[in-house]
Design a protein around this nucleic acid. Structure first.
Lengths: 214, 214
DNA sequence: ATTCCGTAAATTGGCGCCAATAATGGATAC
DNA sequence: GTATCCATTATTGGCGCCAATTTACGGAAT
């Protein structure tokens, strides 16, 4: 109890800078192309210079920010070419394990996924952008987890992050969000019916329609 | 000319520490489980403390070394579970783009791949372990490049690295190396004949037989 | 008026020091 | 003789300063 409280207090004050910066990039608070001056970040996240530098180095390794030696860092802006390429990779990976997902499905997991899909629906109306983003992440993570390959889940999460600059811009459209929400439920339906072909079809549509997130 | 000379001289003296450490891990010079004390690395690579720290941080992000807070870093040793998972991922990805590779194949690319496969053969006899490793990398990179998705090539290279601790140990067997060399040529054959099914089959065998590298 | 150059301000990036923490060895008590 | 506790040592990790490079600004010359 006191431990939880301590952690919460500590995390609100001193959460990992890399995480904070990452979130601000993913949510679009720091748009693509923005110059990330070290002093600004230092003040923004109330942290020291080395912490900023470590965060920038990490995110540049993950190709989320671009490093121009002796000039600075800026939020990576990806061209259509690369966006397309990453979508292709996600389609290959996520349809490639669809059979394993279908093989491992249980009534309980279907129920859990339904709940997560509903949580996403709920967030569409009430939640903040970040909560919405997280709800989507939770659904997809749970879905992929059924494949029984945790390494894969991590890799897909990384790939997804890699492409997620300027992510929410394409998200804001209510129509598209509702479309995504519907597709989530359709995917659960297909999973429940153990319809592999349909699940693959839905996954591909889901990834491609919203080129970046899905 | 003088530029090349300069670069060569500079690189021998002051190559990026992360690269050096990475290579020593991949070649097995630093076996799995080894404690990576900062002072040792400082001396080993003749560099400063912050450089060592940056390299360790980067490689721990890539899950190549494990970070134990306030205790140190050690070369990651991966369990069979994870090895299996990563092989599965590689199979899905590399067989998943086989069709694109076949679609984009040209006589020139076949010739180039043959040369690279022969270079690998050559290295089996004469080259050092590292040269051998590089020759293998070059072949697979060229093969994957045919898919026309550079992002994918990078991701596969990353995944391959992720699992490559204790890599060459399973490599040393001459039988296995020769097997790999033969498979390279078989893959080029299948590619030349545009036999998609055969290529997929070979890729899967090639990845699975040597669980880690291939 | 425009362009070029030199100087000043700002920003990045390397480096070393010192505190905090864990491992080690020895001494003491049981 | 063995186990436990304390002191010493070694290692990690945070932090700030200073040099190197770049950019911005202003003045002078064409």
């Amino acid at each position: 109890m006191s431990d939880d409280l301590m952690e919460t207090e500590a995390s609100t004050d001193k959460k990992d800078v890399t995480e904070l910066l990452l979130h601000d990039i993913l949510t679009g608070t720091l748009p693509a192309g923005t110059w990330l001056k070290q002093i600004d970040l230092e003040r923004r996240y109330d942290c020291t210079r080395p912490e900023v530098r470590r965060a920038l180095d990490r995110l540049s390794q993950k190709r989320l920010v671009q490093h121009n030696p002796n000039r600075g860092y800026q939020v990576y802006e990806l061209d259509d070419q690369r966006t397309q390429e990453i979508s292709d990779i996600r389609v290959i990976l996520e349809t490639g394990i669809a059979d394993r997902i279908v093989a491992n499905v249980t009534p309980e997991s279907v129920r859990a996924l339904r709940d997560l899909a509903r949580a996403f629906d709920e967030m569409s109306f009430r939640g903040s952008i970040m909560e919405h983003y997280d709800a989507n992440l939770a659904f997809h993570r749970a879905l992929l987890m059924l494949a029984g390959n945790t390494e894969l889940v991590n890799i897909i999460a990384e790939i997804r992050q890699r492409t997620a600059s300027a992510p929410v811009s394409q998200w804001r459209t209510r129509a598209r969000i509702e479309q995504s929400a519907r597709e989530h439920h359709l995917m659960v339906d297909a999973l429940e019916a153990r319809d592999l072909a349909e699940l693959k079809r839905l996954i591909e549509i889901h990834i491609r329609q919203a080129p970046i997130r899905a």
